[in-house]
Structures are given as C-alpha cells and as structure tokens.
C-alpha cells in the first residue's frame, strides 16, 4: 500500500508511531501501577476497627472514623454553598449580563481562581475565615475556603449546560407573557440541572483530594462530632490524615488503608462523571 515512499519517510513514520504507542502505553501503565499498588498495599490494612473507631492514646490504636466523618461534613457543607453560588453566577452570565466587558472580567476572574494553587487558598482562608472572621481553625472555615476554590468549576459546568437550552424556549416563554424571573425559574433553571450535577461530581472529587488548602483552615484534630458541632471544631479530612500518618508518624499501614479508600472513591467518581456525561448527552440528543 505504501509503495513509492522513500526510506527516510518510512523511518520517520515508524519512529513517530512507535513513540506515540510507547507514550500511550507508559501513561496507561502508570495508572494501572498506581491503582494496583495502592490497592494491594492498602486493602489488607483495612479493618472494621480501623473504620469504626477513633485514635486512642490509651490503647495506642488508630481509627479513621473521625476523618471519614470530617470528610463527609466538609463535602456536604461546601456543596451547600458552592452549588447555588456557582449556578447563580452562571445564570447571571448567560441570562442577564449585557455588558461584554463585565462578562469578560467575570470569566477572567473565574479562570484566575481555577489557576490559583491550593496552598494559597489555604493561606488566605486562614487569614480571612479563621482570623478575620474569627472562625478559628474549623471545618466550616475549611469548607468556605473550598467553596471559593470550587466556584469556577460549578460556574463553568452550569454555564455549559445553560448554553444548550434553546433560545426558542426562552422566547416562547416571553411570548406567553412571562416575566424574566418566571422564564428563569421555569425554563432556564431546569436546563442547568445537568451542569449542576456534573459540577457537583467534579467538586466532590476535588474536595476529596484536597489537602493543602485544609491544612491551616480545618486543621488536624481527630475527634468524633455530630454535623453542626463538627463544623465549629477543627478536624482532619482523609487526605490530611493520610499526610499526617505518613509524613509525621511513619504509620504507613494506616496511610495506605486511607489511600486505598481514596483511590476507590476516585474511581467511583470518575465512573459517575463518565456515566452522567453520557446520560446527559443522550438525553440532549433526543
């Protein structure tokens, strides 16, 4: 088929193909290694006692129940704030904003936010929420820091889904005499459910994996609290606990057990994001 191609060209083609295949194989192998290694090291360390108790200095045992609870609390309280804020900002950008310059400024701000490293969020969160607003080192301060961090994510996914609401729907509603708010409530908001769900999944993934921003805002404590009480207290999430056990205490068994849990949750979230994306796409095409 490829007769008439000079030897030099053929060598180039072979080389590039080999390099491409090799790179893709390296990438895939890396992922496979990471998943298998973490699971193989971590799963045997998991036990019911580890999952259902808190660390005790008396018996010298380690349990990660408080860290699991803290993670759940932080995820819930971050989502409660970030979903309405992000979705509202997206509605403003797509439905209300007339001033092109203002839109550009807001979008630039969102891009800037998504590029800021989490350690800087942690620092400013510590200065603003913990010191200035006097929340001390607490889960709530951590959650509010993460709200700012995840704002651009929810904003973007909602904006994307609002763009797929056909203009004719809005015009139809206006034509029937609906006011702006009514159009938004009945036509636009139902259209952004996709985006909010996707933004929600992505945010949960990011919150679950976040550590640098929480180190100085939510702290290290390992005590078991109820939800509202917990928000006022300092507490480590799973990632912060992993860091603490591995780096400060050399408890690699516990660290790997947490890593295995995080890895499993990462896989679940990726799967959920993929399925949600596919489902929404199919529904849109109908």
């Amino acid at each position: 088929m490829q007769t008439g191609i000079s030897r030099k060209r053929r060598a180039y083609i072979l080389l590039m193909r080999a390099l491409m295949g090799l790179s893709a194989a390296v990438t895939a192998a890396l992922v496979l290694f990471l998943v298998v290694y973490v699971m193989a090291k971590g799963l045997p360390e998991l036990s019911w006692t580890l999952l259902s108790t808190k660390p005790s200095y008396l018996t010298g045992s380690i349990g990660i129940l408080p860290d699991i609870l803290n993670t759940v609390y932080i995820i819930l309280s971050t989502l409660v704030f970030v979903l309405p804020l992000g979705a509202g900002a997206a509605v403003y950008l797509t439905e209300y904003a007339r001033n092109k310059k203002l839109v550009a400024v807001i979008e630039y701000a969102a891009e800037t936010l998504s590029g800021i490293p989490s350690i800087i969020y942690g620092l400013v969160g510590m200065l603003f929420f913990c010191s200035f607003l006097d929340m001390q080192t607490s889960l709530l301060a951590g959650a509010l820091t993460l709200v700012v961090m995840n704002l651009p994510t929810v904003l973007r996914t909602t904006q994307e889904s609002l763009k797929t609401v056909p203009q004719s729907y809005r015009e139809g509603a206006f034509g029937l005499g609906a006011g702006k708010w009514r159009v938004i409530r009945t036509v636009v908001l139902p259209g952004c459910v996709d985006g909010i769900v996707t933004g929600c999944i992505l945010s949960v993934g990011r919150i679950l994996g976040e550590s640098a921003a929480l180190l100085f805002t939510a702290g290290f404590a390992h005590a078991v609290h109820g939800f509202f009480e917990g928000l006022e207290h300092s507490g480590a999430t799973l990632t912060v606990a992993l860091y603490f056990y591995a780096k400060e205490q050399g408890q690699f068994g516990v660290a790997f057990a947490i890593a295995a849990i995080l890895m499993a949750l990462t896989l679940v979230i990726q799967l959920a994001a993929m399925l949600a994306g596919r489902w929404f796409k199919r529904r849109r095409e109908q």
């Binding site: 990438t27 992922v31 995080l262």
Partner: peptide, 24 residues
C-alpha cells in the same frame, strides 16, 4: 480505556502521589 485512565490520573489526590513517591 486510555482516556478513562488519564482522567483517573487527574482525580488521584496529591497525597496519594506523595505516599507512593515516598515508598517507591
């Protein structure tokens, strides 16, 4: 398969990278 693997790579928490880096 490979793009799925790449998004998994993006989702792994940085402390897990740190842990594997520390021990491997």
């Amino acid at each position: 398969v490979v793009s799925g693997a790449v998004s998994v790579l993006a989702g792994i928490p940085s402390v897990v990278y740190g842990l594997v880096g520390m021990l491997v």
